[in-house]
Amino acid sequence: MTDTPQIQLPEDKPLEIAGRIYQSRLLVGTGKYHDLMETGHAIEASGAEIVTVAVRRTNLGQNPDEPNLLDVISPKTYTILPNTAGCYTAKDAVRTCRLARELLDGHDLVKLEVLGEHKTLYPNMPETLVAAEELIKDGFKVMVYCSDDPLLAMRLEDMGCVAIMPLGAPIGSGLGIQNRYNIRLIVENAKVPVLVDAGVGTASDATIAMELGCDGVLMNTAIAQAKDPIKMANAMRLAIEAGREAYLAGRMPKKLYASASSPIDGTFF
């Protein structure tokens, strides 16, 4: 093989959240898989380094030899990001985060989500603000799931949240990025990482989020509920990389009319 000259792309700075560096910009959840083996394989294929988990009551009648999620997704290998999914009040969310911190030996990075109602799982922003304030005061590093309102996003950043995570569309809907302009505005204003959390359905949705300048994407259902989750996990890894490269490359401007790619000069007809 001969060496082909490589075009040097501008150096990208890796994702940094709460002082820690990550090579992957894809964050994944662990819900809705068939079993723990599939979960482990899909997460490996995704290349994700940050993995979300939920905190729930231990089943008291359970088989003591039942494998545990954290045996498959080891905190030694991955940054475990406990979520507050299922919480509808600030109080429940704060309680869940404190349990998670105990569960993970003092690990204080959390994904705060306070939900508004069952049908849309839309974030309850007044309760989210209350919970964020209390958690930050208590020493947590808060990555916050929020609406795509640019002003609320700035408010959350000013409060000290370490990452802003607006939804692209409702959780588990797979509808894609519904309001690109708002996501773009949030990215422009923010000094902390902005990650689209929720709404991605397929690879192109993840690419769009990255082309808008997002620092990363968090997803679960799009991978777990694909016909082949492991293949989709790999597709998402590539989609995130493609979107990031396109963002860094800087896209051409959109035009209403055509602009010929072949020169007009030198035509012989």
Partner: peptide, 10 residues
């Protein structure tokens, strides 16, 4: 008393 652990979630 609440006894909790980590399970799959997004």
């Amino acid at each position: 008393v609440e006894v909790v652990h980590a399970i799959g979630g997004g």
